[in-house]
Amino acid sequence: MDRLFSGALRVARPLAKSLTLSLALSCAAQAQVVLRVDGHPITLEEAEAVNPQAADQPQVRQQVVEQLAQQQLLADALKSVPPQAQARIEAGQKNLRRQALAQLSAEAFLQAHPISQEAIRQAYEKHIADLPTRQYWLRWIVVKTPEEAKRVLDALRGGKQTFTALALHHSIGQNAELGGALGWQSEQAMSAEVLGVVRKLQPGQVAGPIALGENLAIIQLVAERTPPKPDFEQLKPQIEQQLRQAALQAHVQELAKNAKIDNLAPPAQAAPAKKMESSHAQ
Rank of each mutant, 00 (worst) to 15 (best):
S6M: 13
R10E: 15
V11Q: 15
P14V: 09
P14G: 11
A16M: 12
S18G: 04
L19A: 02
L23E: 13
A24M: 05
A28R: 13
A28C: 09
A29Y: 13
V33M: 01
L44I: 10
L44D: 02
E46T: 02
A47N: 02
A47Q: 06
A47L: 02
N51L: 10
D56E: 15
P58E: 01
Q59E: 15
V60W: 02
R61W: 14
R61P: 06
Q63R: 10
Q67E: 12
A69P: 06
L73H: 07
L78E: 12
V81Q: 10
Q84G: 11
Q86P: 03
A91S: 09
A91M: 09
Q93A: 14
N95R: 15
A100S: 05
Q103M: 08
L104N: 08
E107W: 14
A108I: 09
F109A: 01
L110G: 03
Q111C: 00
Q111T: 01
P114N: 07
I115D: 07
Q117E: 13
Q117M: 03
E118G: 00
R121W: 10
K126P: 00
H127F: 12
P132V: 00
T133R: 14
Q135R: 11
Q135I: 14
Y136F: 08
L138H: 06
R139P: 05
R139L: 01
R139Q: 11
W140N: 04
V142P: 00
K150V: 06
K150L: 03
L156S: 05
G158D: 13
G159H: 02
A165Y: 15
H169C: 13
S171Y: 02
Q174R: 14
N175Y: 11
G180W: 07
A181V: 07
L182Q: 07
W184H: 00
W184R: 04
Q185L: 12
E193S: 11
E193W: 12
V194Y: 04
G196N: 03
V198N: 08
K200P: 04
L201T: 03
Q202M: 11
V206N: 06
A207F: 02
G208F: 03
I210Q: 08
L212R: 12
G213P: 11
E214V: 00
A217M: 03
L221W: 10
A223N: 11
A223T: 01
E224N: 14
T226M: 07
P227S: 10
P230R: 07
F232L: 13
L235M: 14
L235S: 06
P237D: 09
Q238H: 08
Q238T: 14
L243M: 10
R244N: 09
L248E: 00
L248H: 01
Q249H: 13
V252S: 01
Q253K: 15
L255V: 02
N258I: 01
I261W: 08
D262Q: 13
N263M: 07
A273I: 04
K274H: 11
K275E: 05
K275T: 07
K275G: 02
M276G: 14
A281F: 13
Q282Y: 11
